[in-house]
Amino acid sequence: MSVIGAGHRSIPAPSRHTVLRFPEYLCELVPDSPGVRRFSAIYIDNQDPKKFRREAEGILLPIELRSLGDLRQHLSARSAADFEQGRTVELDGWILSQTEADSLTLATLYRMG
């Protein structure tokens, strides 16, 4: 399954602080669990993990990230917009926003190093 919409990030670019803290916050938000790993495996399918990671970060990184709450709010807003614009994926019967699927999978990739 591909990450649709990659490369459509608007400028300005995220701050250095945001880029550094984003993986930490995302891993804190997304639990390390068999369910998340299962969803991630289905979603990434046989794509190149590096390419997926690069494209997903391009989509998900907020401009400014001060706290975990910021990230939760950012992803919630993005999810709502995904649903409105039809950017959904079906994983194991669940209809999720692309943002949710990207987040689950990206967190799993971060943990894998």
Partner: peptide, 21 residues
């Protein structure tokens, strides 16, 4: 119908839909 509901429930933050097998 599950897709229509998923869109609206998701957009409004009401919840997520699991489609019957």
């Amino acid at each position: 119908m599950p897709r229509l509901l998923a869109r609206e429930f998701g957009r409004l933050g009401i919840g997520r839909v699991h489609v019957s097998p």
